[in-house]
Each structure stands twice: as C-alpha cells, then as structure tokens.
Design a protein around this nucleic acid. Structure first.
Lengths: 243, 243
DNA sequence: CTGCAACCCTGCCCTTGGGGAAGGGTCAAG
DNA sequence: CTTGACCCTTCCCCAAGGGCAGGGTTGCAG
C-alpha cells in the first residue's frame, strides 16, 4: 500500500494532480491509514495511468469521468473518437508549423522588392498618395494571408498597369474619390471598367484569391468606406458584371 | 479602416480574443473613430495573423508580447526554438496516440488469460489468498506499465513455479509472512533463495523491467510493508546477492 | 529521546486564455 | 422610429492544476 507521493512519482504526475482527480471524481478516493494518509494499491495505479493517457490526449477531465461509467462498447467508441480528434490536432499543429516557417522566412521581407518598386511607380504615373497607401496595405494583406497565390495576382496587376489605356482606368478610379456620388462620370467609368475587364479576362474568371477567403470583400469594404463615390462605383461595376 | 468584428471574422478569431490581446499588450490598440469604436488597418491584420500563428503553436501570450520588442535575430532564434518545441509536442501526441491504442486493445483484457489461469493455480499449490492477491496486483501493474516486456517476465515466473523445488521456496516466502522478524528460519530461507537465484540465472542479470522504471522497488516496498518478516527477508536476500 | 527533514493533510487564492452575460451606446435599413 | 446588428466596458466563470499557509506524521540520525 503506497502513499500518494509514491504513486505520483511513479506514474509521473504531481500529487496535486492526483488530488484534483479525486475531487473531480475521476479517481476513487482510496482508504486512509491510521493517520489519515491515503493508501493506494496497484489498481489505483492502473486507473491513474489510464486517466493520464486520456488526459494527455487532451480529453477534458469531465469527459474522462463520464467514461468511467460507460459500457465497454461505449468506451471503445469514445476511444476511437478521441483518436480521431488527436489525429486532427496533430495535423493542425503541423499546419501551424508550416505557417511558422513562412513567418520565419518572411519576417524580414514583408513585401517582395518588386512590389515595393511597383508602388514607387504609382506616384510617377500620377496616382495619389492615398491610392498608393491603399495599394500598399492591400498587398501587405494579400501577401500575408495568401503567400503562395499573391505573387500571381500581383503580376497580373502589374501587367494591367503597364498598359497605358488600362492604367488610365485606374487613374480615373483613383481620382473619382472626390467626386459626388451621383456624378455621371462615375457611371461612365463603371461602364468602361466593366468592359475592359471583360476584354481582358473574357468569360473566364479573373484571377482571385481563394474562394473561401473573404479578403476581397474586406478590402473592397475598406476601399469603399473612404468615399461615397467609390462606394457607388463599386456597386455599378458589380451590377454591370453580373448583368 | 475596418471594425473589430470584421478583423476578427477575417482572421478567424473571436472579438474577445482581440480585446484580450490588446489588454495583454500583444496587439497595439488602434485609434478610435468618433463613436469610440476601434478602427483597424491592414498592418493590424498582419500583426494579428502573426500573433495567432504563434499562439496556435502554443506559445504563451506573455512570450509573444516579449517577442514584439525583440531584435530580428532574437526573433528568428525564438522561432527556431518554438518550432522545435512544436516538433516535440507532435511527437508526444503521437506517443500518446500509441498508448491510447494499447488502451483500446486492452480495455477488455486487463490480464491475459494465461495469467488468470496461473493465478488460479496458486491456490491449488498451497499459496495463501494474500499471496495470490499480491501477485494479481503485481501483474496488473506490470502489464499496464510495460506491456511489451511483461509477457516475457511472466513466462519466466511461470516456468520457475513449475519446478516443485523452486515453487517450495516461494511457498516458504509466502508463509514467512507471519513469522517473527528475527526468526532464524528467515535467514535460512534467504540463503536458499539467493542460492537458487544464482543457480537459475548464473551471473547474468535476472530478467527485469526497464532500468529506468522504479516499479520493482515500488512493488517490493508494497510487499515489505505488509510484514516485518518479509521486510527482513528482502534485506537479507539483497545482502547475499550483492555479496 | 529529541531533533529535523521529508512526507502528508485541508483550504485558499493565483494563473492562462479566453467565454459569456450585463448594461449601455451606435449605426444602417426599412 | 424602431429594430437588429454592431460596438463599448466591466464583471464573473471555466479548466487544470501550481503554490502557499498552517498543521499533523514518520523515519532516521545524533
């Protein structure tokens, strides 16, 4: 009949942990000796080892307690579920590890240099600083969240801006910021942009982020928020595109 | 400039989490708009994503906060450490998974049937119920903690008991329980047991559990505790063996 | 025989990483 | 003008223990 300290030392848990398991009804309170010390037998050690195995697998103590009164078949079933959860968690951790590595690789270069260069071009092409800042934020966000997809998108964008006619559309977009929301030039611009988009990408979808991502919407909302004219422009373009 | 809810929804955390990160100094409090709402920009989103990546890797928030003011080289170093820790944790989880499977396999059979049969033999051979119970506890413990080694040990033990002369030694051990601690028959028995052990295993070590395990000591302590005579017997045997 | 160190007991508060509700202000759409 | 969806702060709650106080036991060494 061993003491709580021996049991703890052997199974590799703290004394406190054992007492907590008693309190929560996971491990049966053993008999006490004459001086009130808990005295454990081999069965207690075995129970504790089982409990620990489950607890280390991340099973909440309450669930372990409930499992104590489960039938054997329920218990097996629960074990299968727990194992699956564990597999998922391991997969999750590996994914996290991957993101961690990306973070390590990118911690010095928030943006590729070509993007920086591109952003400097913007001013020379006549874009406002406001536009350039917006673009910078946008690309930071895209590169941070979709590191593998971002560069493709960026090249597409850079290519678009290299064409003077298309660039003019973006310049107009930029300068529409301060127009009234009901200025007819906005309708005209929306028409021209929708047309150019169709011409450039045909009926194919333009390159986009992950379908599951709501980044585009987020970005667009951010953009729209700063000007009613832009807000209206966005609405019109969508209407034309979906027509 | 997005609101806290948008930021949260986008990065995939709860609003509360963001506020906690503000409180703990992980994420800088952004400016408020006219109505006191927090307004976030793209940089905040990026910071939050980084923080989340670290937090999901299990890094304590306090450490993440400290990392904010680390130099770039320190940061890289920390990332390496974190990745290693993560690798360890994944390994640990896989080990747990293995133990879980053993638990699933063994949940119906705490002891192999041959062990059960062996224990029933004990009574017929003249061992006391006390001895049989002790043996049962012992084997439960050994099988639970060293599932791969246990069967070997058990076979060795069963083989020993199959020999009537050796079995008599164990019977004497059993019945020595109620002798006085200074009974001379104990000295005699200790001598005979030590001799038989040498004869059976020669100078080789007798089969044992893991060197790192303190189970044998635990078991022996448990055994000794129930009788001063056994206690002395154990002392004498050790003395003879180590001589 | 008497220290004294090493155990054990209970009870209480502390921590981490948030969750959830209370109580109140804001915003946009119908 | 109301309604629902946001946002604000403050407060309490949870799991799974850690740690300490204040007090009793044991075993071993001098």
């Amino acid at each position: 009949m061993i003491t709580i300290g021996q049991l703890a030392g052997y199974v590799g848990v703290s004394i406190k942990t054992i007492r907590v398991y008693h309190d929560k009804g996971l491990l049966q309170e053993p008999d006490r000796d004459a001086s009130g010390y808990r005295r454990y037998g081999a069965n207690d050690a075995i129970d504790l080892i089982k409990i620990r195995t489950l607890a280390e697998a991340g099973v909440p103590l309450a669930r372990i307690r409930d499992l104590r009164s489960a039938t054997n078949e329920e218990f097996r079933q629960a074990l299968r579920e727990i194992e699956d959860e564990l597999t998922d968690r391991i997969r999750g951790l590996r994914a996290t590890q991957g993101r961690l590595r990306q973070l390590a690789a990118g911690c010095l270069a928030p943006l590729p240099t070509e993007v920086g260069a591109h952003l400097e071009h913007l001013a020379r092409w006549g874009f406002t600083p406001r536009w350039a800042d917006l673009q910078r934020d946008l690309w930071i966000l895209v590169f941070a969240t979709h590191p593998d997809h971002a560069i493709t998108l960026f090249h597409d964008q850079a290519e678009t801006l290299a064409d003077p006619a298309l660039r003019q559309l973006f310049l107009d977009y930029d300068h529409a910021h301060d127009l009234d929301a009901d200025d007819p030039r906005i309708d005209d611009l929306a028409r021209r942009i929708a047309e150019a988009t169709r011409e450039r990408y045909g009926l194919d979808e333009p390159p986009e982020l992950d379908a599951a991502s709501d980044i585009p919407a987020l970005i667009q909302r951010t953009v729209n928020a700063s000007s009613p004219a832009w807000q209206r422009l966005d609405t019109l373009i969508r209407a034309q595109r979906d027509a």
